[in-house]
Write a protein that binds this DNA or RNA. Structure first.
Lengths: 288, 288
DNA sequence: CTAAATCTGAAATTTTATTTCAGAAATTGT
DNA sequence: ACAATTTCTGAAATAAAATTTCAGATTTAG
């Protein structure tokens, strides 16, 4: 960022009379300036193109062109940070919805990044790297996240399952052994089915990783490694939108960390997977 | 953000010979372009100013000036987010992985936001609001996104399904009618199963919404409304991580827009009721 | 009150952007 | 394969915008 508008504001006190008018005009119509010509600006300031030019140079730009370019850059950054974050009003416009939703999702990613403890994360991905078998438990939207994780970890040749059916989950948990890992995904941290499954998993000697909201919950107290995502108060309104993004981001990080741990091996598997998908694509159509 | 470089990259396949050279040059020297004149650019492309101008117009800008201004804006945003976005090296540290993955996801959200056309979005959510029944088609990780959408739309009482099995999808498509909507989710835009289903859906008179990458694909040409997500070149490495986030964000926006539409409708009903009560009040004495 | 210094804008100049149009290249139909 | 049609291309003309110049106005200092 060039701080163009800042320079302009500062300049007002230290600049000759005519240019002061120009500076004022720029501050009042920054967006419009970028698509105006010197003569237009001059006219609107009851002044001359020469005066505008002199002003641009006096505050350190090469000319009017240079000034406009820098201003355009700054403005687009400013508009980016201006994106709203407040809750949506009933009559919200489409633009409003687009930027609020996106910003909430972005914010949730950054917040969760701050909550992510490096030690816990290291514990977690080491458990996964060493795991012979990985079981993921999640209900509702957390089940979808678990499935997403399965799709990822399968790519690096991990034996890895997520069932939507509670009885299947439980049977799977019973079959875990000491070198296996159970991953519990539950935003509330109190999902009964998930608690039940990780208890079974623990009793079989398996290790437990929990991904849950930042709070003292039943699931986090049972886990060997706990990864937190940012807690949002108005769970009702947000419909689990933001926590889902943050959780997926945690999965991405875990997956990438594992893949990097066994970089060469992982790359080999990735290539194979890719080739096979390509082949099937040539024959029968591409995958999503 | 205007997605200038995206447009340029995508344009290469769909533009005449001379302009292709210009596009290529822009991609290779984006920073320099902004302070160059048309004639300079033309000279460096062994071409004419007219060709450069034609190119700028063909990808949707008013002229070279307009193009440069938009590009300058985008570049300053890109430089802002560019800090830790480089591909991960084999020996990457955990901190490194955490920030690169998160930044990629964030960037993908922002980039897709700029590709989201308001008109198409309006078309899409109106179709969804008016739909009697919604069918979602997706394979692999796109199926998970479809399921996520189902969970959301069910909350606002929409009849809404997503099947993982192709035959179920197809049966469901056959049962669609004129007031129903099919949503095709496919990053590549060429998934055979999905194409098949939306063709069936169309033949039944149903409307089709596509969510796919920014490119000219089979699915986007079949759809009544197309919503784009940012296209990443190295699909191999990223394992569909970033496109998934962007697609979920689009779903969030669609869902929220629908929910708000219904809210407005409810509000409208409330107002009408209120007016009617007022009227009767004027005639026969006021109500408390 | 005048001389020097500074400021200002009209007009000239230069640079840059845009349009026009005739010829070249590619495409199509026969 | 060939003519007709369409599309593409860049040289040159034109228009627009940016920048410079300079003479006169205004201010300031002695």
């Amino acid at each position: 960022m060039n701080g163009v508008l800042y320079r302009v504001r500062e300049s007002i006190g230290a600049v000759k009379q005519t240019e002061k008018v120009v500076a004022q005009y720029i501050l009042q119509h920054p967006e419009e300036i970028v698509s105006m010509s010197v003569q237009q600006v001059a006219a609107n300031c009851y002044s001359s193109p020469a005066a505008v030019l002199r002003y641009c140079k006096s505050i350190g730009y090469e000319g009017f062109k240079d000034f406009k370019l820098k201003l355009a850059g700054d403005l687009s950054i400013i508009s980016l940070h201006d994106l709203e974050k407040e809750p949506l009003e009933p009559g919200a416009s489409l633009e409003n919805i687009m930027s609020v939703i996106t910003n909430n999702n972005v914010q949730s990613l950054y917040e969760s990044l701050q909550l992510l403890d490096k030690e816990e994360l290291t514990k977690a991905y080491r458990l996964l790297v060493d795991a012979e078998k990985i079981d993921l438990y999640g209900v509702g939207s957390s089940y979808l996240i678990a499935s997403d994780a399965v799709q990822k970890f399968m790519r690096i040749n991990k034996v890895c399952t997520a069932y939507s059916d509670f009885h299947m989950q439980r049977v799977s948990a019973v079959n875990l052994r000491a070198n296996d890992v159970a991953v519990a995904i539950s935003y509330s941290g109190e999902t009964k089915q998930v608690i039940d499954c990780i208890k079974v998993a623990k009793s079989q000697g398996a290790k437990v990783i929990a991904i849950t909201k930042y709070a003292d919950t039943a699931i986090s107290s049972l886990a060997d490694a706990v990864l937190f995502v940012a807690a949002k108060e108005d769970e009702f309104r947000s419909a689990a939108m933001t926590s889902r993004m943050a959780t997926l981001n945690v999965i991405d990080i875990l997956y990438t960390a594992c893949a990097h741990e066994e970089y060469d091996e992982a790359l080999l598997h990735l290539r194979r997977t890719h080739e096979i998908i390509q082949q099937s694509g040539e024959k029968g159509g591409r995958n999503s």
